[in-house]
Design a protein around this nucleic acid. Structure first.
Lengths: 232, 232
DNA sequence: GTCTATAGCTTGATAGAC
DNA sequence: GTCTATCAAGCTATAGAC
């Protein structure tokens, strides 16, 4: 579980998980200027994410992805050198967002600021819900080469949310619970569920676990009122 | 994710997921009387669970399991007809516990009783932590034949924890958040963490999310059904 | 109860035509 | 930029010897 809050024995990893466009035998393009291939690449990423989020990384074959895209495995390997590279490219944007959130969180000091950090995390997870389903869900992902870098990054979020540098077991556990609560709330949401309600509820749940003030949820007034747990 | 609280379009499945001892070509035993093979069977289940919890179901091969056990794949297939059957056998005990918990929960009415139900769930997850890591973590598991029965069972827990039969989005989301919080807290616990502290913190987190009184005799804070009625 | 041997299939990945 | 053709390696599962 890559998004596990704490994992033993993981050294610093090479951070070059950039979504470099792999170029095959013909080297048609090497930089950032948009080409027709970029659109194909985007299609691949979208389809692959959908399938992987559904069946898991290990259980999703390149053949399946290619078939769904309407072409062959070989064409897929033109765009991505390996299956792991494909996964790294899928994960890239969310990791960038997470890095940004952590950077923003470094200045956090008051409970209200931590609450805003939680809100930011909820938004991040909501934005990348399908991806989070993969990262937080699929054990086979953690064995993927390009993903080892994600873990240390994620871990930096923990003390920020806890509001302290040195954490005891209860504090660590509380943060783990809060983060997975957010994951579960957003990832397991049904299509019929109003996203805003889901998001607000996830936020409130995390705040409740962390003992943070849950006001200013940012949704409709009636939504913010729900779930304070009790009257009074 | 089998332990997802809600999943669309799932019909009733055949409930015969009993851990029937598969008997191979020689039919050495067919009933419940203990044999030497039962010990081997138990060893298989233990080793398989460990590997699957680590790498995921799809990413764990029968060869890997057999190798770790010190014998060959063929020997494994003597005890279990298919890889899916092996998974079903692993899952069996936890499912039985869950059924028992739900049966117990059918009589729940007061918030205090619901709190006790939460406690029971925490204990269940703690007892089967490795297994929960598989069920809640591995998307490939939900495609396993023997596991479809688990989902409807699990779903019956939701209204019991929410304290109502008809749930709105916020209520469902809150229960999902509480359950995944428990999962995360217990499954991600490190060896160095005191299990009792972890367990207590997971319990408190779930109660906080659900708006239940976390203390036994402490707070007389009356709480109606989850999410019903805000502070307004 | 565990073995060898193997069938039959799918996988991730490559080479080279077009 | 996508194809066909191909590969070695891995997989689940079976048959039958011991």
């Amino acid at each position: 579980m890559v998004w596990s809050v704490i994992e033993p024995g993981e050294k610093g990893q090479d951070p070059d998980t950039g979504p470099e466009p792999h170029v095959g035998h013909g080297q048609p393009h090497a930089g950032h200027t948009p080409h027709a291939g970029d659109q194909t690449r985007a299609r691949i990423l979208s389809v692959a994410l959908e399938l992987i989020a559904d069946h898991g990384f290990a259980a999703t074959s390149t053949r399946e992805i290619a078939e769904r895209l309407g072409f062959t495995k070989a064409a897929l390997y033109y765009h991505f050198r390996t299956k792991d590279d494909l996964l790294a490219a899928i994960v890239g944007p969310a990791m960038a967002d997470l890095e940004a959130l952590i950077e923003r969180g470094r200045a956090v000091r008051t409970p209200e600021e931590r609450r805003d950090l939680v809100k930011g995390y909820v938004d991040l997870v909501a934005t990348h819900a399908d991806l989070i389903r993969v990262l937080a869900s699929d054990p086979s992902v953690k064995e993927s080469a390009g993903l080892h870098a994600a873990l240390p990054v994620f871990r930096r979020l923990v003390p920020l949310l806890a509001g302290a540098d040195e954490l005891d077991t209860a504090q660590r556990t509380r943060v783990r619970a809060a983060l997975t609560a957010v994951h579960g709330a957003l990832v397991q949401a049904q299509p019929a569920d109003d996203p805003e309600i889901v998001r607000a509820t996830a936020f409130e749940a995390a705040c409740a676990v962390l003992g943070l003030p849950a006001e200013d949820a940012g949704g409709p007034a009636e939504v913010a009122a729900v779930g304070k747990g009790g009257p009074g």
